[in-house]
């Protein structure tokens, strides 16, 4: 799952650094993720994992790192 998340961030996150150089806990916003780009990341994640992020999850800290995104997806897919 982490690899899928990383590849979506690489494609849609418009990060100012290479995602490969960031740890799972690195702050994506400090790496240049803008709120606009984060919307595209959300959309790609919803498509890839066949999920819908409920509005309560649409906030900054849910998408702040690879680990945080993984935790959110696991919550929605029942830990699969």
């Amino acid at each position: 799952m982490v690899e899928d998340i990383r590849s979506i961030l690489k494609e849609h996150g418009k990060l100012s650094v290479d995602i490969a150089g960031l740890s799972d806990d690195a702050d994506l916003y400090q790496a240049g993720l803008t709120s606009h780009a984060s919307v595209n990341v959300m959309l790609a994640l919803e498509g890839k994992f066949d999920i819908e992020f409920p509005d309560r999850m649409l906030k900054r800290n849910v998408f702040e790192s690879v680990s945080a995104i993984r935790a959110a997806i696991e919550e929605l897919t029942g830990g699969a």
């Binding site: 709120s35 606009h36 919307v39 595209n40 959300m42 959309l43 919803e46 819908e52 992020f53 409920p54 509005d55 649409l58």
Partner: peptide, 10 residues
């Protein structure tokens, strides 16, 4: 417009 692509408002 971008945010409404993910906001469900349900």
């Amino acid at each position: 417009a971008a945010m409404l692509l993910v906001l469900k408002d349900d």
